[in-house]
Amino acid sequence: MSAAPDIICIGSVLWDVIGRTASHMRAGADVPGRITRLPGGVAMNIAMTLKRFGLSPALLTVIGRDVDGDALVAEAQGMGLICDHIYRSDDLPTDVYMAIEAANGLIAAIADAHSLEAAGDKILRPLSDGRLGTADAPYAGSVALDGNLTEDLLRSIATSPLFARADLRVAPASPGKAERLLALLGHPSATLYVNLEEAGLLCQTHFDDSAKACAALLTRGAHRVLVTDGGRAASEGTAGDVITAHPPSVLVTRVTGAGDTFMAAHIASERQGLDRRAALARALDAAAAYVSGETPL
């Protein structure tokens, strides 16, 4: 029998191929550094952090029945993540993300998440076939949802009875996919986790700080929202009430996965009973530890 999850993480689970250098880079630069391949993707990053906080997350995603897919599932199982409900495809390859990070930040990234998009609602079958829920008895726990899903699927989720009782936590995969979350702005239980740029894209404007962005998203119909702004103040708002906190100052050594770490730490903190201010502060501390390199990869 499958283990019962504390939370379901829906979205991209793939290999992260990351090149990092201590040098500053510009277009066309060729510098020494290190290249690593690690389990990644928004859903995977969130699940790994939730596990570190003592929760038992289950993954809903697509992974190919290829060598890379077998290795990725083995890595996830080795971390204690619940992989029983992953859709394994015979004809779709395992997705991959490639990024270059330098001393001056993220230089470039390409996300090849075409298999996740092609799989569509097949990854959600456990929520309807009785393994995790049904339309008549929907899953009533926490769900971390990744914006790598297609706009059509996100729109379907926004009105689906399968998510009617869920505590839905949502993050865009990147600024380029932020507008996909417009379908979930009016969802009655959705919490959106976005950065300042993504908040601006959702509101079709520019914000000077996270508090203003947070208030604007609430005005646009968001049930609850958290807005981060790198090393500057982050904000959380619900029912028109916005609170703000400042992250610790740290030396940034990596950026890929920082937002996912923040989101997972915030979810875990609330599940463990912390109040709004304490949960926001703990999430900022966790993200700072991650970007500084103190948190293990």
Results as ranks from 00 to 15, higher is better:
Ala166Cys: 15
Thr219Asn: 14
Leu202Asn: 07
Ser210Ile: 04
Phe163His: 03
Ser189Glu: 02
Ala171Gln: 13
Asp167Tyr: 09
Asp167Leu: 10
Gly221Val: 01
Arg232Tyr: 13
Arg220Leu: 15
Leu217Glu: 08
Lys177Glu: 11
Gln204Pro: 06
Thr219Met: 14
Lys177Tyr: 07
Ala158Ile: 00
Ala173Cys: 13
Thr219Gly: 09
Ala233Met: 06
His223Ile: 02
Leu153Tyr: 07
Asp229Met: 08
Ala178Asp: 01
Ala211Gln: 08
Pro188Ala: 02
Pro188Ile: 00
Ala215Trp: 10
Leu201Arg: 14
Ser210Glu: 10
Ala178Gly: 06
Leu217Trp: 08
Ser174Asp: 13
Glu179Phe: 06
Ala213Arg: 02
Gly176Asn: 15
Leu181Lys: 03
Ala164Phe: 01
Pro161Asn: 09
Glu197Pro: 01
Leu162Ala: 10
Ala216Met: 11
Ser235Asn: 12
Ala222Asp: 00
Ala199Gln: 02
Ala171Met: 13
Thr228Phe: 00
Cys214Gln: 04
Gly176Phe: 12
Arg155Tyr: 03
Thr205Arg: 14
Glu197Thr: 15
Ala158Lys: 03
Ser235Gln: 10
Gly231His: 09
Leu218Pro: 08
Leu217Pro: 06
Thr228Asp: 04
Ala222Trp: 00
Lys212Phe: 14
Ala178Gln: 00
Val225Pro: 00
Leu218Ser: 10
Leu185Glu: 08
Asp208Arg: 13
Leu201Val: 06
Leu226Tyr: 03
Ala234Phe: 07
Leu182Phe: 00
Pro172Cys: 08
Arg224Asn: 08
